[in-house]
Amino acid sequence: MNIITDHHVHSEFSGDCNTPIDDVVKRAIELGLKEVMFTDHQDFDYPSDEICFEINIEEYVEKIKKLREKYKEIDILMGIEIGYQPDLNDKINNLLNSHPFDFVICSIHAWNDIELDTGDLFKGKTQEEGYREYFENLKYCVEHFDNCDVY
């Protein structure tokens, strides 16, 4: 039996999404899904104030718990998408080790006050230099951080 699921779902708990988490669960049930996994963003020290990528983690955990009690016909999994930065390794691990996450995505959205989605990575650099810096950071992450399920 194949189970179709998406392990990269955001809700209003992520700064880049305004979809109520309840609506996502209801739609997943309508679609006949057996499970839904939330992996809302947690980026400590994100360099922009335009979007907040820090979850109110206690509220998030409590909301998932209530949804699990309310909707018995679907498995509701609590994940998180961590925005990895090397200098935040201990802070990230403390968060991940203090909550029962079902799934952890490790992403690199920023470092050294650079947002990757703005193109700032390439300012004052060649394209090759920018990509090299990105892949060197990714390599460091893979070598020094293993508290996740997928990069």
Rank of each mutant, 00 (worst) to 15 (best):
H99V: 02
N89F: 07
E58M: 11
I21E: 05
K125E: 05
K91N: 09
D113N: 15
D22A: 14
G83S: 11
S98G: 09
R68S: 01
F53V: 03
P100V: 00
G79T: 01
H41I: 06
Q127P: 03
I82V: 10
M37A: 08
R68H: 04
G130I: 06
H41N: 07
C106F: 14
D146E: 07
D75Y: 08
C141Q: 08
I92V: 10
D45P: 03
L121A: 10
V25P: 04
I57K: 13
I76C: 01
Y84A: 01
I64S: 05
Q85P: 00
D117L: 13
V25T: 06
K26T: 08
D45T: 09
L96S: 01
D23W: 15
D40S: 13
I51F: 11
H99M: 07
T126H: 11
I51E: 01
D146S: 11
D49I: 10
Q127T: 12
D22W: 15
N89S: 09
E115H: 05
I51S: 02
Y131R: 15
E81V: 03
K72Q: 11
K63E: 12
T126W: 14
H109Y: 10
S48C: 11
N97P: 00
L33E: 12
E59Q: 14
P100G: 08
T19N: 11
N18D: 15
N93W: 14
T39W: 12
D75H: 11
N147T: 02
E62Q: 13
S98M: 12
D120H: 12
L95K: 13
D102P: 04
L96Q: 06
S107H: 12
M78F: 04
L116Y: 12
F145N: 03
L31P: 01
T19I: 15
C106D: 05
M78H: 00
T39H: 11
G32E: 09
